[in-house]
């Protein structure tokens, strides 16, 4: 870890870029409310795997970019992603050894927290309450977690990102 500390950073950036692309790719109307939080999922993965490289700062930057992409209040996603990054880094040793189904539950909790925080900020600035389908993305994201985990792990091993 000492010699090859910073290795493959470009792939981390690329994975975030891919997640952002998936966030703004047009979907059919029926699927739009189901779109998971790709950026949050990617952030959670890297925070769990490389907590010494990806943590609150990266979450903040990713959140700012996400705010710009989504047209939301600047800092809204940044705040909640930093918080999630903090929690992930804080708990990474525990979550790493969980069985997959338990990891899925944890990820769902994180994603729900993200939705809750953005909802909270939105309601503070006076936006109306969204429809109940607002709470679907965390479920979808949690169910997709095993796939994402496998995908990003293989990426990490292939390119020996440390």
């Amino acid at each position: 870890m000492n010699l090859t500390r910073h290795h493959g950073g470009i792939f981390i950036v690329l994975s975030f870029a891919a997640a952002m692309l998936l966030t703004i790719v047009p979907l059919p109307d029926g699927l739009r409310p189901l779109r998971p939080d790709w950026v949050t999922l990617t952030l959670i993965f890297w925070c769990l795997v490389l907590p010494y490289r990806i943590s609150v700062g990266s979450g903040f930057v990713a959140g700012l970019l996400l705010d710009t992409l989504n047209g939301t209040l600047l800092g809204e996603h940044a705040l909640s992603l930093s918080l999630i990054a903090y929690l992930c880094v804080r708990l990474h040793q525990r979550i790493r050894v969980y069985p997959m189904w338990q990891q899925v539950l944890m990820v769902m909790v994180f994603l729900t927290l993200h939705q809750l925080l953005t909802l909270w900020i939105d309601s503070v600035i006076g936006r109306p309450m969204p429809s109940p389908s607002y709470w679907l993305p965390p479920l979808v994201g949690g169910l997709l977690w095993p796939v994402i985990y496998q995908l990003l792990t293989s990426l990490r091993i292939n390119f020996s990102i440390q």
Binding site: I24, L27, R32, N70, G71, Y134
Partner: peptide, 13 residues
């Protein structure tokens, strides 16, 4: 631009 924004905001790019 054919990009999707937040589904709960009616915004276009």
């Amino acid at each position: 631009l054919s990009v999707d924004m937040d589904p709960y905001r009616h915004q276009i790019e």
